[in-house]
Design a protein around this nucleic acid. Sequence first.
DNA 1: CCCCCTTAGTAAAGGGGGTCTACTAACAAA
DNA 2: TTTGTTAGTAGACCCCCTTTACTAAGGGGG
Lengths: 387, 387
Amino acid sequence: MTTDVTRNVATMRGLSSRLRPLTKVLPEHARAHNRSLVLQHLFHEGPTSRADLARATQLTRVTISDLVSALIAEGLVEELGVRPGQRVGKPAILVGMRTSAYQIVAVDLTDDMEMRGAVMSLNGAIVVRSQLNIEGRTGADLVDLLARFIRGLIASATQPVLGVGIGSPGVVDPEGLVVEAPNRRWFDVPLAADLADRLGLPVHVANDANIAALAEFTFGNADGDGFMIVTVGQGVGAGVVVDGSPMRGYRNAAGEIGHVTVLAEGGLRCACGRDGCLETVLAVPALRSATAGLSTQDSDAALASAGRLLGTALAPVISALNLSEVLLSGPAELLDGPLRETALEVIRDRTMPAVNAGLTFRMASLDEDVVLSGAAVLVLSGQLGVS
Amino acid sequence: MTTDVTRNVATMRGLSSRLRPLTKVLPEHARAHNRSLVLQHLFHEGPTSRADLARATQLTRVTISDLVSALIAEGLVEELGVRPGQRVGKPAILVGMRTSAYQIVAVDLTDDMEMRGAVMSLNGAIVVRSQLNIEGRTGADLVDLLARFIRGLIASATQPVLGVGIGSPGVVDPEGLVVEAPNRRWFDVPLAADLADRLGLPVHVANDANIAALAEFTFGNADGDGFMIVTVGQGVGAGVVVDGSPMRGYRNAAGEIGHVTVLAEGGLRCACGRDGCLETVLAVPALRSATAGLSTQDSDAALASAGRLLGTALAPVISALNLSEVLLSGPAELLDGPLRETALEVIRDRTMPAVNAGLTFRMASLDEDVVLSGAAVLVLSGQLGVS
DNA sequence: CCCCCTTAGTAAAGGGGGTCTACTAACAAA
DNA sequence: TTTGTTAGTAGACCCCCTTTACTAAGGGGG
């Protein structure tokens, strides 16, 4: 046998990193991947014939038939009859994802005062919506309350529940351990494992801003090549998606941009104990108080000034990562005007053309249910490999 | 088995992204991955017994034996005799990577005046070194010169050459197309494809700062969970590695941090045509002229002031990505003092504890051959899946 | 010294996974 | 009709890893 070293080897990116335990790949993993490929296509493109699936995935029609029949057996996919329209050859049978066959329970814990939840269909549509006042509960009490809340949601589901997704503030590790969420008094709380235990269902937990980014990627039309969403509410958070997957950070704290100092001196005291954080000028309360009772002109100037600081903070990030989009999520009446425009101006001023030429800076396309949608994506991608 | 060739197989992460064409995974890809796993382990951990490889990779001893014998047949791996030391059971036979069986040709095009090249063994040791004055050549001329230069290096190799790696300034796409490298007058030059054609060898090209990051990851001890290297030379560049893989950016311009504006007003004119870029204060010429003829104290102050600007620019990036390390690469007498210390101080001041607590900010561990090492990693990872 | 135990490495059978080839089904157009 | 085209499936085959069982080669205790 002659040497054959001149070939390019498939390194499945990330897997060959020496950091995470080196992980073997088996044929069945390939199978799972290809299965996800099919679901992914059906999810985003809608009903498709097997032959078209084969063309789209580069798999053979035989393999696709096999995968599809397995998915049909699982109840995730169904035949939808012959494709309408006249063309040559045997008519194609469309198969589609049964988006109503399962449901997802999603919870948004962003708000300090209440938890918001929903039962959603697989395509992200909200079927049942519910909220519950937290009444100052924290720590284990809050976990108990959350468990009851979720049980209620599960009970109101009209289809089998695929899993539970939760968006929480604070630092959350990939296993759903809440490392720290000070306002909830959660420190190293194994939220996902705990709830999965109690509920007997798969539970996925992640940072709220991070999954907002996921939601914009999956349900919005954000460019997965690299974009960032800045969420403006009681606080300021961010989520970064690069190459279709969300940045995590070495201690799971990626996106914590609200506490970057943007005012070297004269900044207000921030909840985090330091002065001049971005949050002290960009969070909704800050913007409201900065514009309260001002003339339109003065209020616009105040918003522009916040935008200037935002732009200054974002310019280096956009340059370092060569992002293609920045999304703003939050009250449009505050964000989608002088603030956004000024931020973009500043970013253009402070970055090189190669970086800012293709950049778009716009409002997020999803509304206040972003985090719920993100929680749904968490479940979709965790359980079905779809995103 | 002859040339099974330039089959460029998919990368696993990002495969599920709906952006790039959905790519199937086959059992043989799993095989290739596992093969890389073995090489990866031998590369980083040194000689290992088959049984230990099985434990490390979670594959069975049978599979490992099979993979190893294939690697031995390819000449990439060899048996090294019985493992020394007494213990129970049948003595283990160590197998190791034949790092001297093949060689790599690496070229560093960072410098405006000369190209630097080397023949390296698979473990990154430089066997032959060579440089060539560019004499103002640009464009196609420069490509011709480069081809001749590389041919010379190949001729001086003492072992079969695995491939050619090139670090170029400018924007380079994943296929080795130099999108733009203004100083070289290269615009959309398919450098990798062109040279591969002429040389009959696999050629990999990437941005110099980006592969410097790769080098620190592979040969240094940078934390692949997330770090960034800032290269300070005639210009200022950066490379970001997250989860073991380098950031690319949606237009392959990730790391272009040298042209972020850091001086809103009063900045010097930059080569890029704008004012107050980081490069105008941090590049080596700028630092030298800022410190020339000054007392130690004044010079230190000047360096600290550059450090302050660097820290200010990096703080948002570190926060957004939750990086664990920042490396500085360049002349230590300029960088490794007040500049670095001040930058770190500023970063600590301007980021929240959860982000800066675990952060280290240090000089890169590789010397002026970083880019050459990075070029070697390019080949190693492209041809063998090792990094 | 012998027996037992442990560890290393291999051979053979088996099963999952995808492709290739060949076939049927079902239509449009000539 | 006949011809050509497209959709979908069946069977044979190859790749790849695992399970099971076996051999090889040591240590240690009685």
